[in-house]
């Protein structure tokens, strides 16, 4: 098992946290993991992305140039990362805020109305968890339970009251794909 994932979207959408939850869950399951954010001025209100590698063996490079999966939360990121995906790779994206469709037909695509579903749960900020749920349902890279366990480790204590809501959003995503 060897997964190289990029999560991308706008700053503030929970892009980095999504990647950290996956990495933490992988670590809890005894897998090798790495997580790298983009950093610098592009973080300030612009696009954000992070690379996550989860593997049953040693991770040689933590840098992801040819992802096996991508989770995409805005249009610029779709344009930037879709071409990098390996043939047969998985694209999970939020079709409720990205008004274009992916161009490639040699990849697997899961369109999720993440923003709309999150809105229905009463908090737009958990759209990332809906996408994460859909991604996990399709790949099984880590178990949802491990992700839920990671929430309390990754989220700062002042956000711990949002754990049940994050859990609901993850579960809403799990039943989509």
């Amino acid at each position: 098992m060897h997964e190289e994932l990029i999560v991308a979207g706008f700053g503030g959408q929970g892009v980095l946290v999504t990647g950290q939850l996956l990495a933490y869950a992988g670590m809890l399951e005894g897998k090798k993991v790495s997580w790298i954010p983009s950093y610098g001025p592009e973080m300030r209100g612009g696009t954000a992305n992070c690379s996550v590698v989860i593997s049953s063996g040693e991770i040689a490079s933590p840098l992801v140039n040819e992802p096996t999966s991508i989770i995409i939360m805005n249009k610029p990121s779709l344009r930037r990362f879709e071409p990098l995906l390996v043939p047969g790779g998985l694209l999970v994206y939020d079709c409720s805020i990205i008004d274009v469709t992916p161009e490639r037909n040699d990849i697997e695509t899961v369109a999720v109305e993440a923003n709309r579903i999150a809105d229905g749960l009463g908090e737009l900020k958990v759209a990332n968890m809906v996408l994460l749920g859909a991604y996990l349902a399709r790949t099984g890279v880590v178990s949802p339970e491990a992700v839920i366990e990671s929430l309390s480790k990754v989220l700062p204590p002042r956000r711990h009251h949002l754990i049940p809501l994050n859990k609901s959003a993850l579960e809403a995503g799990l039943v989509i794909s």
Partner: peptide
Amino acid sequence: DGVLGQMMEP
């Protein structure tokens, strides 16, 4: 470097 500094690993 920036990669090692920003990177998270167990």
